[in-house]
Computed example of a mutant assay.
Amino acid sequence: MKSPEVLISLVVPAYNYGKLLPRALDSVFGQWADDLELIVVNDGSRDNTLEVLAGYSARYPQLQVVDQANAGAAAARNKGIALARGRYVLLLDADDELAPGAIETLREVLRANADVGMVLGGQISVFPDGKERLRLPTPVPRASARELARSYLLEKRITVSHCCTLFARELLLRRPYPEGLRTSEDIPVFAFLVVNAKVVTTDVPIARIHKHPDSLRHNRENEEDYAMNLVDEVFASLPDECQDLSVRYRAQRYLSLFRAALLSGDRSSARRFYGQALRLSPMQAMRWTYLRKASRLVVA
């Protein structure tokens, strides 16, 4: 008997989230259908993640579990995407969950929009104090590749997030997640998709995103190298007409480093990072929000 065609592959990278993983899995199986597949990539977890997955595999034989040595979220996502059979992929984080009815909403969007490359959905942010906030997707205008890249990278008028976004698998295969980046590995992928994909939106919530205090921590080891590698990764997959934006984006990353250094009390690094941004893009660095902070670093 021929297996049903898979429309949506749900890929869950999991690392040390055994206590929260059931919430994500239950949210998928609660709206299961034959046109879905679920792949969980255990990225070398050291907690009880594999035990949790073994219990679910016994109850749900359709669950596919992949176990790999710890290689990071980018590698786990790439592994799941490579194994997926669906035309579309939804990347669900192990500590989040699908909203009720999310899959049917996505089916309806796909039925109404042929050859769509990316579906941006609504999301419900759930904070540690129990408060919730509905966030609606930002429409993506019809514009040139350069205008789209500028809107996403520099002006931040376009927002893309995992869990509430559906991707055409063939596009993710063309632009895999860069496994050499420690953080922000999604930005090069999202920039490529914003420029290359036909994008539609739905205001219906696709996921519930749980915010954690540890998500706000910032590892500053080798931070400048990582930030500049990120810029290189972003523009490596963008067309020629976008390349002139790389200097401004490099300045923006230095301004992000500047803010992080200020927050950690590292005034010396903050001054250096601000100086780099100022040299690259004076107009960007002299915006009042940055200039006001930098003026406090002036030593008489």
Rank of each mutant, 00 (worst) to 15 (best):
R175V: 11
L278E: 12
P137N: 07
R169M: 10
A191M: 09
R259I: 14
L134F: 02
A227K: 05
V109S: 04
S256L: 09
Y17I: 13
S264P: 05
R248L: 12
D266I: 03
A207N: 11
Q68V: 07
G101M: 07
M283W: 10
L10F: 13
D47N: 09
T202H: 07
L278V: 12
V116C: 15
M1W: 05
D266M: 05
H212C: 13
L20P: 09
F258D: 03
L38V: 04
A145I: 08
A168D: 15
T165V: 00
L53E: 01
S268P: 00
L262P: 04
P22I: 12
G18T: 00
S269H: 13
K156C: 02
R259F: 08
Y254M: 15
E241H: 03
G101H: 02
T202C: 12
S246P: 00
R111F: 03
K131D: 15
I103N: 12
G122T: 01
Y290E: 14
L53C: 06
V247C: 06
F127C: 04
G265Y: 02
D34H: 09
A69E: 08
L36N: 08
D115H: 06
L90F: 10
V140H: 00
A277W: 00
Y88K: 12
L172V: 01
A236T: 08
E37A: 06
D43P: 02
R182Q: 12
A76Q: 11
F127V: 04
R133C: 05
L98W: 00
L153Q: 06
N229L: 14
R174H: 01
F235S: 07
L278A: 14
T165C: 05
N48C: 11
T159A: 09
V199R: 04
V65P: 02
A112R: 11
N16K: 09
I158N: 06
K156L: 07
Q252D: 06
N78H: 04
S9F: 06
D129Q: 07
L63E: 02
V194R: 06
L120K: 13
P128W: 04
E104R: 10
L98Q: 10
S125F: 14
P188G: 03
F273L: 09
D203R: 01
I187T: 14
V40P: 01
L20Q: 15
A75N: 02
Q123T: 09
E155C: 03
D214R: 01
R174L: 12
S125Q: 15
D95Y: 03
R208S: 15
S246F: 03
L262H: 03
R250S: 11
R208G: 15
G30S: 05
W288Q: 14
D115G: 11
A73V: 08
L238A: 07
S27H: 00
